[in-house]
Nucleic acid binder design. Structure first.
Length: 644
RNA sequence: GCCACCGUAGCUCAGCUGGCAGAGCAGCGGUUUUGUAAACCGCGGGUCGGGGGUUCAAAUCCCUUCGGUGGCUCCA
């Protein structure tokens, strides 16, 4: 080992230190501010403890909370802190795993009595104490056998199981803080005092290793931040998410309902929600016709033969409902639309000149989802997919994929979603045997998907092994106004159905060939998409989507006639208008309209009635001044057209 | 499906360790005619999610079932 080592910092500057200098000392030499912020360090990209002596040349970086790795270290340390508090408060509790996750961390515990909300407060208080103790967090390595023995003696059977799963001969690292020792790869913050701003959020059940055959453990979720403002902002965001919850807004704005008496996961669209849905559907249809699609309708159930042929009875049986008996035949509610559309295809003969076919459908499907997974509009048992199937020749494939990608992104942007994340899911190269369809088809299909993404300069994340068994796919996730990602669009090749149903077309050579088929759901499910829209806009819908666009409010009943006429003019212009001619004060009428989140309030008193004008008040913005009725109509038309 | 928690009027919620079901808003009937987020008075409304049990007595305790919430799991 040389006496000095060279460390390359992120700005590419190189500094020399005596060999064996610790990461903390290096950071201290860079600057006191950085030393205060540093949670751990990174050596050639690998995170290490601040106390690690450095013995060789390397790329070096301090890890602060600003980096993903730094955040992970702090939160992982917070999970250890929580586990220590729990084991101190409730002796005999076994600890399982406690990783950092997006936005926080959790730890799974095995304890007879469940944790109550009060327990979280107690645990938090104990965590605060341990922080004050400022216990050093130290790393300790031991051979595998010794580690197993050690945790056996502690009665930590889950840890023993974890270590046993590690390869033989591997050195096991543990981290100790005070009397608490945990199996852990690390790194961690140097002492418990370094964890300052944290909060326990919820308790939930979780199976050991995520397998429902295993014991149900108790998981406590928490989060941790480096600065108080960050934690406060995060908690404020959680509050905001609660406020925007589509289940709450759906009720408040009278958009939809679910009923115990009707059955779980079945949605009733109220007039206002249905109005919005019809606007979404109308736009969707208009764009599809303009985009070269035809629209089809198919039934809600079909005979056993269809589902046997498609393979759903074999592979998707758990998600399908029991059959209905019709004249002694079994009919199943459809969980997907494709077989029905294939029936349409099979009713004719197609030549290569007829392709590509682009068939879209708002098809209502029924899937059994386990009761615990149901959630508002996001996970239901009956929903309408905006499904489409593209049937094309190999030569048309590239163009069709590019076209459907452009089309999807364009429609998502119509609804205000321009920030998207795209994933390309391909085969698991290690398990090529578990996929349907010829190897050549997979290769070509994947090339089409890649080419389309490249043509648009889209950096998609490649997901090895995430393809469904019947074909590769592109998924588009949209980012909402709170930064959350929602998967909507999926563009999937299907090499299975054309085969199963023996779909063919006659090619230039006069022979029958197998067409390529692509499934595409764009908005996904109308129910779910509606839920996303509600939360994205927090119920403050843009004018073109708002179920009620204008509330006409007269100041006294003397303007009743003028108000009625105005409402009539706006309605005739195609706007959605309500009139509140009642005897309340204008303040009360305005309040009602504001609470209903109506985008425009047309307020008319004596002055307006005389001059054929209105006073326009915008939701959330207040009075924006007077304008003539014609000006109002023009303004509304313009705003609707812009979908602003 | 599993674990925890929850279910009281249309909505939001109060009702402590068992002792005659409450409030605000909404609704309805009046009065009020009002200038940018709540006028006033009055009235009606509940088998306390359903079923069973314990008890002299159950919204309250126990069992069961349905539904919801947070997770786990699954997602052709």
């Amino acid at each position: 080992m040389s006496a000095t080592i060279k460390l390359t910092l992120p700005d590419d500057s190189v500094r020399e230190y005596p060999a064996g200098t610790t990461a903390a000392e290096v950071i201290k030499s860079i600057g006191p501010g950085l030393a205060r912020a540093a949670l751990a360090a990174s050596l050639d990209g690998t995170p290490v403890d601040l106390g690690t002596p450095i013995g060789h040349d390397a790329r070096f970086a301090a890890l602060t909370f600003d980096s993903d790795q730094g955040r992970e270290v702090l939160r992982h340390s917070a999970s250890h802190l929580m586990a220590q508090a729990v084991t101190e408060l409730y002796p005999g509790t076994k600890v399982a795993i406690g990783p950092a996750i997006e936005d926080g961390y959790y730890y799974d515990f095995d304890r007879e009595t469940p944790f109550a909300a009060e327990d979280l407060k107690k645990i938090e208080a104990r965590m605060a104490e341990i922080v004050l103790r400022d216990l050093p967090v130290t790393r300790q390595e031991m051979p595998r056998d010794q580690a197993i023995e050690h945790f056996k003696q502690l009665g930590e059977t889950y840890k023993v199981e974890l270590i046993e799963a590690l390869p033989a001969g591997e050195t096991i690292s543990c981290y100790r803080q005070g009397g608490f020792i945990d199996l852990c790869r690390g790194p961690h913050v140097p002492s418990t005092g370094r964890i300052r701003h944290y909060k326990l959020l919820s308790v939930a059940g979780a199976y050991w290793r995520g397998d429902e055959r295993n014991k149900m453990l108790q998981r406590i979720y928490g989060t941790a931040f480096d600065k108080k403002e960050q934690l406060d902002a995060h908690l404020a965001k959680l509050e905001e998410i609660k406020k925007r919850d589509h289940r709450r807004l759906g009720k408040e704005l009278d958009l939809f309902s679910l009923h115990e008496e009707l059955g779980a996961g079945l949605v009733c669209w109220h007039p206002k929600g249905a109005r919005m849905r019809s606007i979404v559907e109308d736009h969707w249809r208009k764009r599809h016709f303009a985009g070269g699609y035809d629209i089809v309708y198919t039934p809600h159930l079909g005979r056993e033969w269809v589902w046997q042929t498609s393979g759903h009875l074999k592979f998707y049986h758990e998600n399908m409902y029991s059959p209905v008996d019709i004249d002694g035949d079994k009919y199943y509610l459809k969980p997907v639309n494709c077989p029905m559309q294939i029936m349409i295809y099979k009713s004719g003969h197609y030549s290569y000149r007829d392709l590509p076919l682009r068939w879209a459908e708002l098809g209502t499907v029924y899937r059994y989802e386990r009761s615990g997974t149901l959630a508002g509009l996001f996970r239901v048992r009956g929903f309408t997919q905006d499904d489409a199937h593209i049937i094309c020749t190999p030569a048309q494939m590239d163009e069709e994929i590019l076209r459907v990608l452009d089309f999807s992104l364009s429609i998502l942007s119509d609804f205000g979603f321009t920030d998207v994340k795209i994933e390309l899911s391909v085969r698991d190269p290690a398990r090529l045997d578990k996929y349907a369809g010829a190897d050549e088809m997979w290769v070509k299909a994947e090339q089409s998907l890649v080419k389309a993404l490249q043509a648009r300069g889209i950096a998609a994340e490649r997901m090895e092994g995430e393809a469904v068994f019947y074909g590769p796919k592109i998924d588009i996730k949209i980012r909402d106004s709170l930064g959350r990602l929602w998967q909507c669009t999926t563009i999937q090749f299907d090499f299975n159905m054309p085969e199963k149903f023996d779909m063919t077309y006659v090619a230039e050579d006069g022979a029958k060939h197998r067409p390529y088929m692509v499934h595409r759901a764009l908005l996904g499910s109308l129910e779910r998409f509606f839920g996303i829209l509600i939360e994205h806009y927090a119920g403050n819908f843009p004018l073109w989507l708002a179920p009620v666009q204008v509330a006409v409010l007269n100041i006294t009943s003397a303007q009743g006639e003028y108000a009625r006429k105005l409402a009539g003019v706006l309605t005739a212009q195609g706007f959605r208008v309500t009139l509140n001619p009642g005897g309340e004060k204008i303040g009360a009428k305005i309040r009602d309209a504001e609470i209903a989140k109506v985008p425009c309030m047309a307020i008319v008193g004596a002055k307006e009635a005389e001059t054929n004008r209105v006073s326009l008040r915008r939701h959330g913005r207040g009075d924006v001044g007077q304008l003539t009725v014609d000006e109002l109509v023009a303004l509304l038309h313009k705003e609707v057209a812009e979908r602003a």
